[in-house]
Nucleic acid binder design. Structure first.
Length: 996
RNA sequence: GCGCCGGUAGCUCAGCUGGUUAGAGCACACGCCUGAUAAGCGUGAGGUCGGCGGUUCGAGUCCGCCCCGGCGCACCA
């Protein structure tokens, strides 16, 4: 036959071949399609319809951790919302009632900071606090609106029109109720303690608000002159026993070391180790001839003398630290008499073994000071400056007789502490106290907002007592401390990844009491009053209840609105404790730590919102793993203390978003972008697909290039679905679906594989290992479907009788698989699955959106016997494919139908094959699977080659020169058997019949 | 300093309680098909499983030490 004749024969039968047909586009056009679908969801009220459909079902609530209402929603927050949406959609499809109420954290320093910046750095004198707070509220609300719009572009479904805001009066009132409960149970205390203090933000900071950054500080070695020795002082005996005792006393000093010279004015003691070994040494300074003496830890003498380049160093006496008991020294520039004390934290890893102790500026120092009854000196104001004038003298607790003859006070007053560092060092040097100084690099806590170093400062603050034992036995039957109860609850909670439990446990085990007060405007006031004269604090259950009522009605602005809410109205006599009736009171100025607010969301949202209040505790909290020390921890503390249990049953964390270099995202580096822009440029589904595909428990690189790269995987899934649905153009499941028992073995195998994937994907989702689910789906689409199943089914679907069993059988499997694929992808590819769903033939009564559909169940479709059968077949295929490829490269054949295959199994393999079917049928089935024109099974011989991976097999592939069927291209050997269709094989002639 | 996690093909990762020749996807090379077509199929190349030592008949898998990366905690007086 000529080439042209061949062509015309093909054309003659072209229309009888049932080629795939679908409008489902290969190209997603996400950028255009997604906004359309989002609009459609809004118009058809999809979220509300889901709520209605799940009404009364078991609840499974993911409680939203509120993002901060400031700045753009970027990749990190976008990922967080995406993961939450995936979990919510998964649980919804599983049949749970899973409402999603998003929230925003609207109070706090950063907003106040930005508003003040717009006002020129500080509150104008003529502006009321209420006005400032209104500006802050406007600012926060504008970002709520902005971020809400940004999150919606990701296709996240939720109660966007009615979110929770920490600024709403109801929210605020419930925060106060948490405080009232804590107060009633005895957890609240007001005390003077050292706290981390940001002088730049002028506020106390919580642990979670610290960031450690590298910094260079002066490291100084300072001589503190020994001035006295108590009566039974062993050290005195040591000195007196030496012949040169007299001259020693004149030049003797304790050598201390510090990297914060600015704390030296607050020095009140030197701490030594009782057990360490100290030495009394004589030496000369690098540039001097005078003999001097000092005390230092023996182990550190060498380092110190080398650093300070001391000469003629001679150890006069070695003794135990405890012998220093009773030694006193004179503060080098304030002349106060100070003692040597002992502390077990004194180590010999750095410094001199003699620790400069300033209880006003260090936590351990403070504890030592309390134990040793040392004065607490804290001469630094809230802005990090030394006090001035009389106030400075007072704070330094100087003797009235002290004369500032050397100009120390003059120099320090009003000085920022960090700027004071070099001044102090230079003056110490000039006066001869300094033995050595050098710059030291170390990590140092910084304020997370201002990025300025923080200082320790003793102030009066409100605290939650972590080791308090709630006396209410109904609530705390075993009389445990809050800390212990927190650890108990942590153990009862499921943590994903599992190491989260260790992490948060360690934090709870070690954490100090929680300082909940802040000295700012933009927050919820701690509703305490004080006597205008004495400062005595007025606070009890009834004052709290009354103020809470006012706040719930009028918002927390009432506290700041002195005109409308003077103290007499805010706290009328009849709600005051007896002793405060009629007295002049003032409102106290502290606000709550914002972490207290967001940590109270279990009360303000989960237990207060009409839609959620019967669903406490939440099924899950899901945030970045930094929230172990943030929101998770504070939520846990407040809920365990006031509700007696963890506010969440599961806690899932993700790692941080980084750039391709592994660096943390930041706006200034430009490696972070607004999520709505990402959606517009790349498509929300692609971004979602990427987030679902990566291991979120390790730092997650997010760049355009990486997300675009993930497009391969997305397109493969899409095209595989398209291949399936393209073959369902004439399939109506109600009419054409074939019962499972009548399905062809290959189709039942495909369903068995599908069942396995459902099980695997579901298990991965239950562990929240989304990337494992996406991998399973990717492998399923790539290998099981695309390379194996779909390829083998083509002949049946294209060429068999349209309504015959073998075609309908394949279509039935295709339909089920396409449906399962759509559902398994629904939580991730939220937009794409809508289009998939629309192109999928559906039975009457099925929902109009996949998000209303049910999660697939594996049921009992796994068939191990079939799986084994086809596993063997596909192994045979791998062997023949290798040989076929060689022949293609030799230009002997083109497509597989140009060849036939002879298989020569050894005895064992032959036995296996025999068990799988009668020789005739088996050969035909294998020809189909191998995509060749014929298979024979028999003994081997010349031209056979050994298989590579399959034991016991030899095979021979031959060029098949039988004529090809013009319709199905197979060279079956029976072409022309039907005279009306001389160019067709018998099968095709039968199918075509009279039609062509 | 202590602890946790990770280090398997160019990239992203699978490899459960130790057991035949270490796998997959992407990318790459070559080829086929042109009836999934800005698709699809096949074949191939590519790995001292971070390094060293040990236990074992046998180690990517267990143990010890070390190196690298990330994180947490502590210290930073």
């Amino acid at each position: 036959m000529t080439e042209q004749a061949e062509k015309s024969e093909k054309n003659r039968y072209k229309d009888t071949v049932l080629l795939p047909k679908t409008d489902f586009p290969m190209k997603a056009g996400l950028q255009q399609r997604e906004p359309e679908l989002q609009k459609h969801w809004a118009e058809t009220r999809l979220y509300e319809r889901i709520r209605a459909a799940r009404k009364g079902a078991p609840a499974w609530v993911l409680h939203d951790g509120p993002p901060y209402a400031n700045g753009d929603a970027h990749t990190g927050t976008g990922m967080n919302k995406t993961l939450k949406d995936m979990v919510v959609k998964f649980r919804t499809m599983q049949g749970f009632d899973s409402p999603y109420v998003p929230g925003w954290d609207c109070h706090g320093l950063p907003i106040e900071h930005n508003v003040l910046k717009d006002l020129g750095g500080k509150k104008p004198d003529n502006m009321t606090s209420v006005r400032l707070r209104e500006l802050c509220l406007d600012y926060a609300n504008s970002y709520v609106d902005k971020q809400r719009a940004q999150f919606k572009t990701l296709g996240v479904l939720g109660r966007w029109e009615d979110p929770y805001l920490t600024t709403s009066p109801v929210y605020e009132a419930n925060v106060l109720r948490v405080f009232a409960d804590l107060f009633a149970r005895g957890f609240i205390t007001r005390a003077k303690r050292p706290v981390h203090w940001s002088w730049a933000a002028q506020s106390a900071l919580a642990e979670a608000e610290l960031e450690y950054e590298d910094r260079t500080d002066p490291s100084v070695y300072v001589r503190f002159p020994v001035s006295s020795c108590g009566k039974d002082c062993k050290f005195r005996d040591h000195v007196e026993a030496l012949p040169e005792a007299g001259s020693i006393w004149d030049t003797l000093a304790l050598l201390i070391w510090t990297t914060t010279p600015w704390t030296l004015p607050a020095n009140v003691a030197v701490a030594a180790s009782e057990s360490a070994e100290y030495v009394l040494v004589a030496y000369r300074r690098a540039g001097g001839e005078k003999l001097e003496h000092l005390v230092v830890a023996g182990e550190l003498l060498k380092t110190v003398s080398e650093k300070a380049r001391l000469r003629d160093v001679r150890v006069l006496k070695t003794f135990a630290g405890v012998d220093l008991k009773g030694v006193g020294y004179n503060h080098p520039f304030l002349d106060t008499a100070c003692p040597v004390v002992f502390a077990d934290y004194v180590t010999l890893s750095d410094g001199t073994g003699l620790v400069h102790t300033a209880p006003g500026h260090g936590k351990e120092d403070f504890e030592t000071g309390r134990r040793e009854k040392l004065p607490v000196v804290c001469p630094v104001d809230e802005a990090g400056r030394f006090f001035t004038g009389e106030r400075l003298r007072k704070e330094l607790q100087l003797a009235p007789t002290f004369e500032d003859s050397r100009g120390w006070l003059e120099m320090l007053q009003g000085q920022n502490v960090l700027k004071a560092n070099p001044l102090i060092v230079e003056k110490l040097r000039a006066e001869g106290w300094l033995l050595h100084d050098e710059p030291v690099h170390h990590s140092y806590p910084h304020c997370w907002r201002t990025h300025q170093p923080v200082i320790f400062r003793v102030t009066e603050q409100w605290f939650i007592r972590i080791d308090h034992v709630d006396p209410d036995r109904a609530f705390n039957p075993q009389g445990k401390t809050l800390r212990q109860r927190l650890l108990d609850e942590i153990a009862r909670t499921q943590w994903f990844p599992a190491w989260g439990e260790k992490r948060i446990s360690a934090m709870i085990e070690n954490r100090p009491d929680w300082c909940i007060s802040r000295q700012r405007f933009w927050g919820i006031p701690i509703p305490a009053f004080a006597d205008a004269q004495s400062g005595e604090v007025c606070l009890d259950a009834s004052t709290l209840e009354h103020v809470i009522g006012v706040v719930e009605q009028h918002g927390s602005n009432a506290w700041y609105d002195d005109r409308n809410w003077p103290v007499e109205k805010l706290l009328p006599d009849d709600v005051r404790p007896k002793q405060f009736k009629g007295r002049k009171l003032v409102k106290m100025n502290d606000i709550f730590d914002v972490w207290f607010e967001s940590g109270a969301s279990h009360r303000s949202v989960m237990l207060a919102d009409p839609e959620l209040r019967d669903k406490f505790p939440a099924g899950m909290y899901l945030e970045g793993d930094d929230q172990h020390r943030g929101w998770f921890q504070v939520s846990l503390i407040l809920s365990v203390a006031t509700q007696g249990r963890s506010p969440f049953k599961q806690c899932l964390t993700s790692a941080f978003v980084v750039d391709e270099k592994g660096e943390k995202g930041s706006k200034s580096k430009g490696n972070i972008w607004a999520i709505d822009k990402g959606c517009a440029d790349l498509g929300a589904d692609l971004i979602r697909y990427y987030f679902a595909s990566v291991n979120t428990s390790e730092p997650i690189p997010v760049t355009y290039a990486l997300i675009q790269g993930a497009g391969e995987g997305y397109r493969k899934l899409r095209n595989t679905f398209r291949a399936l649905v393209g073959n369902l153009f004439d399939f109506d499941p109600a009419r054409d679906a074939v019962a499972y028992d009548r399905l062809l073995p290959l189709d039942r195998w495909a369903l068995s594989q599908t069942a396995r994937v459902i099980a695997e994907v579901t298990a991965a989702w239950e562990r929240y290992e989304f990337h494992a689910a996406m991998r399973a789906l990717g492998d399923f689409a790539n290998v099981t479907l695309s390379a194996q199943y779909v390829d083998v089914c083509k002949d049946r679907l294209y060429c068999e009788s349209a309504t015959g069993l073998s075609r309908r059988s394949a279509q039935t499997a295709y339909w089920i698989i396409a449906d399962v694929l759509t559902r398994l992808l629904a939580p991730v590819l939220v937009h794409s699955v809508e289009d998939m769903w629309r192109h999928l033939p559906r039975v009457a009564g099925s929902p109009d959106s996949p998000h209303l559909a049910a999660w697939p169940k594996a049921e009992a479709k796994v068939d191990a016997e079939l799986d084994a059968r086809f596993e063997l077949f596909f192994k045979l295929k791998a062997e023949t494919d290798r040989v076929l490829d060689r022949m293609r490269k030799d230009k002997q054949i083109g497509k597989g139908y140009d060849a036939t295959v002879a298989l020569a199994p050894d005895e064992t393999l032959a036995g296996e094959l025999t068990a799988l079917g009668k020789p005739e049928a088996l050969a035909a089935e294998l020809a189909e699977v191998l995509n060749v024109s014929g298979v024979s099974i028999g003994p081997g011989g010349a031209g056979f080659e050994a298989a590579q991976a399959l034991k016991g097999l030899s095979l021979r592939v031959s060029v098949c020169d039988r004529p090809a069927c013009a319709r199905c291209y197979r060279r079956t050997g029976d072409v022309g058997g039907v005279s009306a269709h001389a160019t067709l094989c018998k099968r095709c002639a039968g199918v075509v019949g009279d039609r062509a």
